[in-house]
Nucleic acid binder design. Sequence first.
RNA 1: GCCGGGAUGGCGAAAUUGGCAGACGCAGCGGACUUAAAAUCCGCAGGGCUCAAAAGGCCUGUGGGGGUUCGAUUCCCCCUCCCGGCACCA
Length: 860
Amino acid sequence: MATQDKPDTILATQSHPERPNPDRPNDERYDPQRVEKKWFDRWQQDASLYAAEPDSTKKKFYVLEMLPYPSGALHMGHVRNYAIGDALARYMWMNGYNVLHPMGWDSFGLPAENAAISNNTPPREWTLRNIASMKAQMNRLGFAYDWSREVTTCLPEYYRWNQWFFLKLYEQGLAYRKNSKVNWCPKCATVLANEQVVDGCCWRHEDTLVGQRELEQWFVRTTKYSEELLRDLDKLEHWPEKVRTMQRNWIGRSEGTLVDFKLDGNAGPGGSTITVFTTRVDTIYGATSIQLAPEHPLVADFTRHNQPLGAQVQQLIAEQRRAKEAGDIGAIEKHGVNTYRYAINPFNGEKIPIWVANYIVMDYGTGAIMSVPAHDERDYDFAKKYKIEIRLVILPIGDDPEATMVEPPLPFVEHDGMTINSGPFSGISSADAIKKMSAYAEEKGFGKATVTYRLKDWGISRQRYWGTPIPMLYCEKDGIVPVSEKDLPVILPDNVDITLTGGSPLGHVPEFVNATCPKCGGPARRETDTMDTFVDSSWYFYRYTDAHNDRAPFDGKIAQYWFPIDQYIGGVEHAILHLIYSRFWTKFMRDLGMIMNDEPVERLFTQGMVIKDGAKMSKSLGNVVSPDEMVARYGADAARLYSLFAAPPDRDLDWQDTGIEGIHRFLGRVYRFFVRNAAVASSSVDGASSLSPEARAIQRKMHQTIKRVSDDFRGRWHFNTCISAIMELVNVLYGAEYAITQGKVPATFLAEVQRTLVLLLAPFAPYLAHELWEVTGQQGSLLKASWPKYDAALAKEEEIEIPVQVNGKLRGRVIVPADAGEAFVLERALADDKVRAAIAGKQIVKKIHIPGKMVNLVVK
RNA sequence: GCCGGGAUGGCGAAAUUGGCAGACGCAGCGGACUUAAAAUCCGCAGGGCUCAAAAGGCCUGUGGGGGUUCGAUUCCCCCUCCCGGCACCA
């Protein structure tokens, strides 16, 4: 602990035998409901309180919390998330920034449909009702949102721009149709979302296995930006390393080589070559088989006239799918079937057998590999099982190349070996071989160096009702035709029976489906799928900057003023999907010329979960803490303050009911101090130019507290220690209360301390802070009050305590003037009784003095 | 398997650049006020040993083991466990 944090010696040594003073009543109870109701009413009446407008004379600050899904009620995770954002917004306001702090609703999605089915309530009604009640909860909690910019994604004023963007994507060739698999419940005869598939079965028919169906669906070409999405992660230095790593893994860049193996014998419709992707082309002379994914197109050629082989392949496919659904794809045993067909290794002309194996997946690389058992663990297991040749072509390089070029234990998978048995490429390093062999393949026309990504294009079609209609038409004559921009929005109809079976719910609404082709004027059929809700959240934060624009999603110039988002705050569960789609959308809008920035979010903060009794809050565990109940019992300030105090914001917070009681007590303590000393602070007896020692001690503590709270806001966001620091200041004030009643603390100074305390508390506990601001006779909103200034000279201690160690062990402490020189400190240290005892009879070999920190005497 | 984050009193945690480990709070204990309780206020408090008791003194302590240093919760090496993400990725 730093010396400046020591309780002041003057206050600590002062004893107060007469306390508590019976003259001072202690029943000025803090009633949060009364205080909060008063300010709630005032804030509700002033809609412009938190309104933001671009202002070129002020530095802007865009602080944003991830918008919630309107499930019906806030949970503690929301409260924590918004308490962090709100504290930051208020702090920035007080520091003179032009703050944008909006809120909205991610209000399309499946739960509304589920609720519609179980409660017989239309999704729209259910959703809007939830929004109303959650908005009321947010207001009760006192969050400072600019509601004039509220965005509700399920309303046409918003989703029409989803449709507009979709047309732009289509124009740019970034939206396209392709066959893709969907979950299909045979009993419902309808498509299921992934969330509706439980243990491989339908959520409503627990005994019915969900099947797969091929459907034509819309895709967005996110892969156009694979490289940029990866590269720009390096620019996001204010993002958590964890999130950047997760995105890097998700994008999954991998450098390798494509090599064509010619098929030996007759070619079918699947073609005459097998292209494999490998990161280890240096091992190609060790390839002893080709392995295809069961769904590889060539496999169909091989099985067309070979029923038994076809049946075996079907089994492999079924296995893969089951394993994937169980989420344990690595656990299935490697096996496969020999097709008794052969391919020719273009490097050495060798004929090697083609197998179909269950460990090859179609959606990575090319769905075909060259199998090199000597240098790949999986290939090794497979070759062992089926007695396929294992041929060593890489040797390890040891410290002494001559002596250590011995056969390694197999499989030898290191990347830093040297080639052998590799024709003209023998005797060079793996890295060198990869370069030379890729170049050779390219020169000869049977391969090339390439880069593959794990990131795939984004399938956005949902066969669901409650989402943005995809603005496309199918005309018998003109084929796929986009809806004209002037015909937007394509309105999502109400009163759709979503319990009907077979395909998308909108398909059962003739007045929706039947339309006119804008090209030929003939009849056309509307697309009945809706968009993934991640489309809604990919660009919503741009809409906040210009929320009522009815000619464009937003005005680029206005967005330019506010962007990038200075601080984005949300749960880590959105680290991948939402945050990649948002980054993609920003790059897409930039290339459309709508905005200038490459990245939407400058700083990202992912807060921890709120847990209780060691587990995530959930109804089934019965450990849910309701924000409403906490607000009713202790007030909004206490609920907010506790969620900031109990743990640093990036860590999980273990909710303890007794903890919030402690916060409630603290707020009461602050309140009582103000009420009790209101008369003193407002009296005008003083004008003393120098403060009494007691007042000086308070002043020091006050400035030390300003520094600690400000530093933690700017730097680490450890609000828990901000609040601890404020508590310490309050404790010091309580310790000084006797001195205050004795008139040793000038009234003007006491008033200054009180104002400072209110300002420090304002970002965390706005209700109480506003009440006390008024109690101390101040006017106006605290958002317009200036954050207190730290004065280093006033914070400085006059005397400090220096610990004295002997051989690194604490033996004594000496009190010296803060600016004492080394000679003086050492002299005092050596004069200390305990230190003298510890060094008696020994020889001092070294004296270490760290100014202001400590003394260490090394003795022998 | 790979990547990221953790492990500190009975509990949540603090120690910001290598410098007094446990600030602040909860729970606990003692006291004041009270007929009593609640509320409030003051104080004690890592563990162990010593001492009749208190004061004091001594030893020990940040998941485990090693290292660097006058000095390590902090830096380096090895290991264990917990949480999160990705994964037959070729």
